[in-house]
Design a protein around this nucleic acid. Sequence first.
RNA 1: GGCUCCUUCGUCUAGUGGUUUAGGACGUCUGGUUCUCAUCCAGAAAAUCGCGGGUUCGAAUCCCGCAGGAGUCACCA
Length: 479
Amino acid sequence: MKTRFAPSPTGYIHIGNVRSAIYPYLLAQQQHGRFILRIEDTDRARYVEGATELIMDTLKWLGLDWDEGPVVGGPNGPYFQTERKAIYHKWANKLIAEGRAYADPTTPDTLDKYRKECYNKKIPFLYRNFRPSNTSEWHEGLPLRFKSDPKPRQWHDAVMGDLSAGPEVQDDIILIKKDGLPTYNFAHIVDDAEMGVTHVIRGAEYISSVPNYLALYEALGLEVPVLVTLPHILGPTGNKKLSKRDGAKSVTDYRDEGVLAETMLNYLACLGWNDGTEQEIYTRDELIKHFSLDRIQVSGARFDETKLLWLNGQWLRRLVEEQGIAEFYPRTEGFWPTSASSYEPEYRQQVFAIIYDRLKTLQDLRTMTDYFFEDPTIDLKLITTNKFLKKFSENQLVDFLQQSVVKLQDTEWNEDSLQDALNQLLESTALKPAELFSLIRIALSYAPFSPALNLTLAVLGKDTSLARFNSTITALANA
RNA sequence: GGCUCCUUCGUCUAGUGGUUUAGGACGUCUGGUUCUCAUCCAGAAAAUCGCGGGUUCGAAUCCCGCAGGAGUCACCA
């Protein structure tokens, strides 16, 4: 088994097309076959500098390592189509020799005229209806067209099942453009054959071209590989396929927002595929083990960012709990608030240990942890309008905080002793947990939420914690 | 417009003629876990299986129509 991912380097990989990399990878892994990365760079006009690197970066991030392709090489290289020109010409000449391809002398203007004619007559435009009777010899500078042999075609698609189309969709497609480079339609067939690709996995937009491909395989004397058509991924609104034009994000945008590679692979693989069980969370190995083409969904699936974020939370907790804080910690690099940079990694690890189970993405660290690294701005409104605290006067609040300071001053600074101390304060102040703990939590963080109080105190440290109590006491006293 | 494909809770899906009063997950809502937020736990609402015919003792499941949606009709992939 040999599969491939064959992107054109026109930009980043977005979530709408990354499944055509994931599924071939999973299949090749499962069958102990090979997964090829081939760069389809024949469109020089749309070529984007650096796009190949962007594509490889995305694949590496997801862990979709290719067995053959750029960087790693392989027995069927080169893996850039622009470097395979001679191969395409070899096959093209074979078709010419057999009278199955011919030079197209039609100028673009004339072509346009033909199209308009058909449009006005309300009949579909087919080049073969305008096929010139005598054609000159083919040479570079002239496009080469396939001499089609239209007839009804039936084929089997591993996902879509049995498909068919009539002769009216088959035409004299261009094999080689006037710049001497092949079109996708021709190049991919030659390449897949030369490279021994057994399974062609690609998006649904190619389905209507398959009859033309079938004709080409036939003319070239090539065996048709297993055809696998993936349904589209739909955008968040409407029913249109997700595309860059409509603002589809790149896969790596999600990485930069703190989504884990494990999540992305899991989510995307399960968008439009399931193994029939009720499992939601799959490791890479589980995906490789359970993946199967015949359980790929036939209809399009909408990309649901909310579910992606839920899954990311699941993965975050799972990985941290499996690996431990220290091993996972390096992956949080780059997601901390700027104020954290002056602190030691050990301290950041302590913060991470008490906050990680509240994160949806790593990026949440930026907004959820700032009070661990700098004193919060005091905003007494948070206290005076708090539903548990507004009934108390400033004097009472000061008194509660002072009692807390006195108690905590003599408390051993670890989470268990701190919890004991907090419980004792509850009794000595005769306050309800909601009252005392709200007050302390706000005084410490002035944040909309924070981890358990004893843990927050423990990590913040005695000096910082008591200083923050005192700041709030002062502020309340002066209010 | 031609051709092709698709159609189960808001979303992702299970379901291949009877075990289905259509199951799960996300989201939503309600409770619970000494404050908050998140997690976790318990529970609820949520699909007349696109519509209409047919086959059958019986259909989400098979057949035929229809409608809606999508894709494609490039010297782009």
